[in-house]
Design a protein around this nucleic acid. Structure first.
Length: 138
DNA sequence: GCCAACGTTGGC
DNA sequence: GCCAACGTTGGC
């Protein structure tokens, strides 16, 4: 099967793209939603992950990838998972929520349909459409 | 800062 | 196993 891709959301005030770039890696902790957790667990090393800023910006700003596959969330003893992410490259131009709403290929995108899901799958077509809008090639 | 939407929790 | 209450998220 082809490589999967994903989208993660973060409030810039909590964890921003620039912080990920600065630190070079991020432990994606704090996910407390079953569906999001299942998505984390489905990630494979090297999968592409779009990085979206919620609340402040409301746009996709960068491309990351999975550095380490799901493991026990170190911040809790409960059954939650984290992955490690690393930055790949920033988008040449960010793609806003409004813009994505206007792109036909993204009509069924999980980000738009289930706006509160913090870790969501992205199809190949959706990834291509976002990257095209961002004028960015991987 | 407000509020609607939605997921989770807990009482029954 | 249902459902009301609660907490959180995220767009506006």
């Amino acid at each position: 099967m082809a490589r999967a891709s994903w989208l993660v959301k973060s409030e810039p005030s909590t964890y921003s793209w620039s912080k990920l770039v600065k630190e070079g890696t991020a432990v994606w902790d704090g996910v407390r939603n079953f569906e999001a957790r299942n998505n984390l667990r489905a990630m494979k090393k090297g999968d592409v992950v779009l990085f979206y800023h919620s609340n402040d910006g409301k746009d996709v700003v960068g491309v990351a990838r999975v550095k380490r596959e799901a493991y026990q969330d170190p911040t809790t003893k409960d059954d939650w998972s984290v992955v490690d992410l690393e930055p790949v490259k920033p988008l040449a131009r960010s793609v806003s929520l409004d813009e994505m709403r206007g792109i036909k290929a993204l009509a069924n995108m999980s980000l738009l349909k289930k706006s509160r899901l913090s870790v969501s799958p992205v199809t190949k077509d959706e990834l291509d459409a976002v990257l095209a809008a961002a004028k960015t090639k991987l």
